[in-house]
């Protein structure tokens, strides 16, 4: 390739650095170390359980996690009996009774985690017109994923002096547009963790984000384990084929 060509590529590369796609002037969330982000990463089970507790006691008031079934919580280390107990704490829509009226029943492990509201309209009515989004896939539905969620939860600060904050909204450093309908959801010592970990805002944010990383990608650990085996297999197979190819091609003159 000619020198001129390299010059083009260099310029192109430099330009692209200055123009990384930004989302409405919100700050890029700081990078956080997650146990599951490494190549052979796994979920921290203790953190998952704490995170589930934070979700249940704080977030579930407004947010659903509707693609997750109770049964799957065994990945967090809960036993079948514990899951049955957790499920039975909640009510889900039951069958229509013989009078034609809807009923509710206790949830079983086969059920999906229920939504706090029967429908979107009820959710909006209870939240000043804002719709709390479902959280199951939140870690995959935002550009910076788990870093963003953690930053958001800990990013409630006072707005700058000349910032016009619409009534009912709250200032958040990392939310696009900086105005978010959700008030700061976490307070220090809001929950009491069973394992004795101190429930600081930062700790709860970290744990619930880990939990949400799991709800978004429950297959992650299995995926990476299988991936390792597949890659090793393909390296071996390709190497064998390469040797065969070279040996065959040796006699091509």
């Amino acid at each position: 390739m000619t020198k001129l060509l390299w010059r083009y590529i260099l310029i192109g590369g430099l330009i692209s650095f200055t123009f990384s796609a930004s989302a409405n002037d919100a700050e890029k969330p700081p990078a956080v170390t997650w146990s599951f982000n490494k190549l052979w990463g796994t979920f921290d089970r203790a953190s998952l359980q704490r995170g589930f507790q934070v979700y249940k006691q704080v977030c579930a008031t407004c947010h659903s996690v509707k693609y997750m079934r109770y049964e799957k919580l065994s990945a967090l280390g809960f036993s079948e009996a514990e899951i049955k107990a957790i499920a039975s704490e909640h009510e889900v829509p039951g069958p229509i009774n013989d009078n034609g009226e809807p009923t509710t029943r206790k949830a079983t492990p086969a059920d999906f985690l229920p939504s706090p509201f029967p429908n979107d309209q009820a959710a909006r009515a209870a939240n000043n017109g804002a719709l709390p989004p479902d959280l199951t896939l939140m870690a995959k539905a935002r550009e910076f994923g788990t870093n963003y969620i953690q930053a958001l939860l800990t990013g409630y600060v006072n707005p700058p002096k000349d910032f016009h904050l619409v009534e009912g909204m709250h200032y958040n450093k990392y939310f696009p547009g900086h105005q978010i309908a959700m008030p700061a959801p976490l307070m220090d010592n809001q929950v009491e963790f069973a394992d004795g970990t101190k429930a600081t805002i930062h700790q709860m944010a970290h744990d619930v984000t880990t939990f949400l990383a799991w709800t978004a990608e429950p297959e992650m650990e299995a995926r990476k384990q299988l991936g390792l085996k597949v890659i090793i297999y393909l390296i071996v197979f390709s190497a064998m084929l390469y040797v065969l190819k070279r040996r065959a091609w040796k006699d091509v003159k």
């Binding site: 297999y233 197979f237 064998m240 040797v243 065969l244």
Partner: peptide
């Protein structure tokens, strides 16, 4: 040797 490698590669490929 060549036959063994072909056999081995075929077997590995089959497993894959």
């Amino acid at each position: 040797r060549r036959d063994f490698l072909i056999l081995a590669t075929t077997a590995v490929g089959g497993v894959g």
